[in-house]
Write a protein that binds this DNA or RNA. Structure first.
Length: 583
RNA sequence: GGACCUGUAGCUCAGUUGGUUAGAGUACCUGCCUGUCACGCAGGGUGUCGCGAGUUCGAGUCUCGUCAGGUCCGCCA
């Protein structure tokens, strides 16, 4: 070892002894005659007192990697600082520069606001910052908590292949050309879905893995093309058994990391109830502002648009912004209409509550005999603002679900340090794809329909068919989703049929899987949770990139190595590939 | 594929109605300073105003295009 201690190991026991330390020069304060260097390593900082003779020999700049020998001293009483090692100071006897440093492109300091572009390009410097080291440390702790909890429940940690058969359903696959089989390709796993089911067929009845997943789709603030999931699958279980396991390891995370328990079991809402009350399948339950329906109130409005919306089978719904009439300017309220345009809405209707009447916006078109009913329905009083949308179910729900979050942020009513978990259950199995002219799976093709909905296969009422499908939501973030799976060949074929897959296609693409279901495949189910989303949400961050050591930019290019990159002709030839000009 | 926002010194940012030599803080360099701790003091500008056209007597500023980053829609079972 080049060092005798790291900076997290210094205690009164080390006082007045000679120690050797390694780290980086965080700051250099040369006073002329007396010189201080702040040494930083992964664990902490420590002030070095460097004699003038040494200072004159070695010139030390920011981020120089140095090795120092010296005596650990107590700092003079009046100079002691409250932070870690703030009472200590190393009286340096020798100093060696292990490696000098260019002037860094930004100062390694939590207080600096740095362009993210630059942070990603120099991620190794960004990671020297405390806030980033804390994330990496937290993530390690979190995964340890999960692993130890699942171990205690006899889960087996099993790896699955990183190169597998391409699956045209759902997200685009990342494809890997095969050198040995010209013209054929592997795909990187979007998830280990089929493998974890096969593990259940094999009788290894409790599986988990920290699985890397790859999807060739555009990135977002909460979505990366490469991500890690806590992936698990269990045999002979029902939904509640899966929920209990997840609630168990989440509680373990809270106990280990925050020293507190969480309220379990979590709240449960069916998908339909959730959409009715929040307009979105991942509601943030840290604040109220639940939706209410205004069909009966606006039906008789002189503004005929409302009646037309109802007749067309649409939805009129809204929510109350407590104190919104007082706090929000006309200009801000108008901006809400711009905000919901992204969700295809034509605009937001609004009315301020003044006394027991309405003012501004759509007020004049609220039927007089319905005003009292609306106040009651909206639970509104003087100074509140009512906002609502009238459109198709999809547009109304999308708009309100997102506007609710948007306004909550603006009104600053989201409490900090609060974690609200929710299971959303009974998602629909299928949705009709207008473009393709057929049904597609809303989640994936391997989820079991609700037993009481299996009859809809016969009646053809496929929109009504809900599955044993569930999402875990925390603070408005979808942490993960799972389902009880189909475990018989017959049922699996039925679902493949519905989405328009011919028997030949089924054999070609999933023959190996259908065959496995024939050998006594047990009932099973599971779930997968995104690790970065979990870290991000638990630490209250709003960008997933900050929760990942080496993320890619939202363009999906990596700032660090500038990948992807072109290949030379020999490599292409070896893989039997030709690059076509894209028009 | 689409909408919006951003791009000026190493970094964070200001820059008026188009008008002289483009600024501030910080970093950096030089010198001074024996208890600083985001040390201080004095001095120093280190710039392809993202890039390319255009309008104009004149463009950091206006127009068009383009590139990069961000947020969102589409997409993402």
């Amino acid at each position: 070892m080049l060092r005798s201690h790291h900076l997290g190991q210094l205690t009164d026991n080390e006082l007045n002894t000679e120690i050797t330390l390694c780290g980086w020069a965080d700051r250099v304060r040369a006073k002329g005659g007396v010189n201080f260097i702040v040494l930083r390593d992964r664990y902490a900082k420590l002030q070095l007192n460097v004699p003038q003779e040494i200072m004159e020999v070695e010139s030390i700049g920011r981020e120089y990697c140095i090795k120092i020998q010296g005596i650990l001293n107590q700092r003079p009483e009046k100079d002691q600082k409250p932070e870690q090692n703030g009472a200590y100071e190393l009286q340096v006897t020798s100093l060696e520069v292990l490696n000098k440093s260019d002037v860094p492109p930004f100062i390694v300091d939590d207080r600096e606001e740095i362009n993210e572009d630059l942070r990603l390009k120099y991620r190794y410097l960004d990671l020297r910052r405390d806030c980033m080291k804390d994330v990496v440390t937290f993530r390690t702790k979190l995964l340890n908590s999960v692993r130890s909890h699942l171990n205690s429940l006899d889960f087996l940690e099993v790896e699955t292949p990183m190169l597998m058969k391409a699956m045209p359903e759902g997200a685009r696959d990342f494809l890997v050309p095969s050198r040995n089989f010209p013209g054929e390709f592997y795909a990187l796993p979007q998830s280990p879905q089929l493998y974890k089911q096969l593990i259940q067929v094999s009788g290894l009845d409790r599986y988990f893995q920290f699985a890397r997943c790859f999807r060739d789709e555009d990135a977002r603030g909460d979505r990366q093309m490469v991500h890690t999931q806590i992936d698990l699958e269990m045999s002979f279980v029902e939904e509640e058994d899966v929920f209990a396991v997840v609630e168990g390891f989440l509680n373990k995370i809270f106990v280990d990391a925050f020293d507190k328990n969480i309220d379990a079991p979590f709240m449960r809402l069916t998908y339909l109830e959730c959409m009715k009350r929040f307009g979105i399948d991942k509601p943030d339950l840290r604040f109220d502002m639940e939706l209410f329906d205004l069909d009966s109130i606006m039906e008789s409005s002189p503004y005929s648009y409302f009646k037309e919306t109802i007749d067309a089978g649409g939805r009129i719904a809204g929510f109350t912004v407590k104190g919104g009439a007082k706090e929000l300017s006309r200009k801000e309220i108008d901006k809400f209409s711009d905000y919901v345009k992204a969700y295809r809405s034509k605009g937001v209707f609004w009315a301020k509550v003044v006394g027991d009447d309405f003012n501004g916006g759509i007020s004049k078109n609220i039927p007089a005999d319905q005003k009292a009913n609306l106040l009651k329905l909206a639970d509104a009083e003087d100074g509140d603002l009512i906002v609502f949308i009238a459109d198709t179910h999809k547009v109304t729900n999308d708009s309100l679900g997102n506007l609710r979050n948007h306004i909550a942020k603006r009104m600053d009513i989201i409490p900090k340090g609060v974690y609200k978990f929710l299971w959303v259950t009974d998602f629909p199995m299928f949705e009709y794809d207008e473009d393709a002219g057929c049904y597609i799976a809303m989640h994936h093709l391997f989820s079991m329909p609700k037993e009481e909905h299996i009859k809809y296969f016969e009646t053809g009422e496929l929109e009504k068919m809900h599955g044993c499908l569930y999402d875990l939501v925390m603070n408005g973030v979808e942490l993960g989703s799972g389902s009880i799976r189909i475990h018989t060949e017959e049922m699996q074929q039925k679902v493949f049929d519905i989405v328009g897959m011919s028997p030949e296609d089924q054999q070609e693409r999933f023959g190996f899987f259908l065959e496995a279901l024939k050998f006594g495949a047990p009932p099973h189910g599971g779930i997968a949770l995104g690790v970065a989303r979990l870290v991000m949400t638990l630490l209250g961050m709003d960008n997933m990139r900050d929760a990942i050591t080496f993320p890619n930019a939202s363009s999906t290019r990596y700032a660090l190595d500038n990948s992807p990159s072109k290949l030379d002709q020999d490599t292409l030839d070896d893989l039997s590939l030709e690059v076509a000009d894209k028009k």
